[in-house]
């Protein structure tokens, strides 16, 4: 969840990276948090984790990013990592149609196991491999609109849109969280106004009456 903490950052947001195996989740993570890319990275077993602090509308936000194993059977254990996540980036590979077709299954997975308010973003990764493209950007855009997700095509290899993707989802999360905080404050204020008002008013009127009496 979103915590307010008084360290070097004001907000801490947990984001999970999900999607089929081999779509480039780990490289998106390493590109974003360490500015590294490895053409031959190892398969992720279980989960991996990294953080990065950034500015969102003038506030220091620490993004805690969880990279999960993509193989289907790992869903049995990775769903435990969705707990407390405020955002999820659903990654597919634009050169592999199957990974795009599986986006629906990942969405269902999230709806079954993640927080219902989780902010979702879809990222079509490997946009540098345009000559091998199997999923058009329009298809991605259309699905994103249909499912109400924000959407970007990214490339961890040449760093296209990687920053933007995280900035977008974190900003969206920030808006929701700050709106929620505001709403909570208002609700609190609303709840306390009648009680407070009564006491103050009563005190004032009685005070006035007394004064009136004394002065006469």
């Amino acid at each position: 969840m979103a915590h307010r903490v008084d360290h070097e950052y004001e907000y801490l947001f947990k984001i999970v990276l999900i999607g089929d195996s081999g779509v480039g989740k780990s490289n998106i993570l390493s590109r974003y948090t360490r500015n590294e890319f490895c053409l031959e990275s190892k398969s992720t077993i279980g989960v991996e984790f990294a953080t990065r602090t950034l500015q969102v509308e003038g506030k220091a936000v620490k993004a805690q990013i969880w990279d999960t194993a993509g193989q289907e059977r790992y869903r049995a254990i990775t769903s435990a990592y969705y707990r407390g996540a405020v955002g999820a980036i659903l990654v597919y590979d634009i050169t592999k149609r199957q990974t795009f077709d599986n986006v629906q299954r990942w969405l269902r997975e999230l709806r079954n196991h993640a927080d219902s308010n989780i902010v979702l973003m879809m990222a079509g990764n490997k946009s540098d491999l345009n000559h091998l493209r199997a999923v058009s950007e329009q298809d991605g855009q259309a699905l994103a609109e249909k499912e109400g997700l924000s959407f970007l095509e990214t490339s961890a290899l040449d760093a296209t849109n990687i920053q933007k993707a995280f900035q977008t989802i974190l900003t969206e999360v920030y808006h929701i969280v700050s709106k929620k905080a505001l709403a909570a404050q208002e609700a609190k204020a609303n709840a306390s106004i009648p009680g407070q008002g009564t006491t103050i008013n009563v005190a004032e009127t009685s005070g006035n009456t007394k004064k009136g009496c004394c002065s006469t």
Binding site: S21, G22, C38, E40, K42, S43
Partner: peptide
């Protein structure tokens, strides 16, 4: 397919 994906991702390099 999954094995194929992981071949190069096993002790890469």
């Amino acid at each position: 397919k999954q094995i194929e994906k992981d071949l190069m991702r096993t002790f890469p390099g």
